[in-house]
């Protein structure tokens, strides 16, 4: 039998010092601590602030009115039903909360698949639709991505944010995942392991199946983006300072990028 771990701390700093000593291997891997606090009290405070109508209009923008509830939902601090009920209580017509409720539905969907698939969620659910075989993808994530020094201002910022905060906006997750799998031809599993290490909401079902959706091993086509799309939904904050602006890897139309990235794929960019 092991002894009880401590429950009494005078401050957050004291708790963090204690955990650094108790979990030295985790602290050595990445010693950052997120500003996001755990606990039901904080979760309820955030739940008070959700705005389902603004969410529907702005959720794709990096500075949009997304809820930041994912770490609490992931660990069951809040149930999906509680979040749904709070969203409905905040609007006049249920339809005004429909977008947020359908995003909650994505989590419910992935959890149901996890129940069915178990550890199979680590395996490709279908072949890649990229013209490449699974064996064409590298099994390890390159250091320049992990360390945030690819030279691409957006990608490097996402990598640093992931490590520092344990959170990324959904769109940033999609762009970063697409960059890893399609621009660098790294197996989605390597990216998924990296995300699970850092995300406060790291969840084998939502994470792995979203990576598979980007990779095209659980969707009809690979997810890609171009500079224009990223610039628009980030309000240009990365592109403005990027030394590669106008000649980065993401320049071009979707058709051009599709041809460049997947020269052997059958079908079109569609």
């Amino acid at each position: 039998m092991s002894s009880n771990m401590r429950r009494d701390f005078a401050s957050r700093d004291e708790l963090i010092d204690y955990l650094r000593r108790e979990f030295p291997q985790a602290a050595a891997r990445s010693g950052e601590v997120s500003a996001t606090r755990g606990g039901r009290r904080e979760a309820e405070a955030r739940l008070q602030r959700i705005d389902p109508q603004r969410y529907a209009a702005t959720r794709n923008y990096l500075d949009g009115a997304v809820t930041h509830l994912s770490p609490y939902i992931r660990h069951g601090v809040l149930s999906l039903a509680e979040v749904r009920d709070a969203a409905l209580s905040r609007v006049r017509r249920p339809a005004d909360a429909a977008k947020l409720v359908s995003e909650l539905g994505w989590r419910d969907y992935w959890q149901r698949l996890y129940e069915r698939l178990g550890d199979e969620i680590w395996r490709d659910q279908e072949p890649y639709k990229t013209g490449y075989r699974a064996s064409d993808y590298a099994s390890e994530l390159p250091d320049d991505i992990i360390e945030g020094r690819t030279g691409l201002a957006c990608i490097d910022a996402f990598s640093r944010d992931l490590r520092a905060t344990g959170y990324l906006h959904n769109h940033a997750r999609m762009w970063l995942a697409a960059y890893v799998v399609h621009w660098r031809r790294v197996a989605w599993q390597a990216g998924a392991r990296w995300f699970l290490e850092h995300l406060l909401d790291g969840d084998p079902a939502s994470n792995n199946l979203s990576w598979q959706w980007v990779a095209s091993t659980f969707s009809h086509k690979p997810y890609i983006f171009n500079r224009e799309n990223l610039e628009r939904f980030t309000n240009g904050i990365y592109c403005r300072t990027c030394p590669l602006y106008g000649r980065c890897d993401f320049e071009g139309t979707y058709e051009e990028l599709h041809r460049r990235l997947f020269p052997n794929a059958t079908g079109n960019a569609g």
Partner: peptide
């Protein structure tokens, strides 16, 4: 924790959740 290489920030977040629950914490 080792298999998934869980980072310190996740441990801190979860520990804060535990401190609001009536639980004994062991490892």
């Amino acid at each position: 924790l080792e298999e998934w290489r869980i980072s310190l920030k996740r441990i801190v977040f979860m520990y804060e959740c535990l401190l609001e629950l009536p639980v004994v914490i062991r490892r």
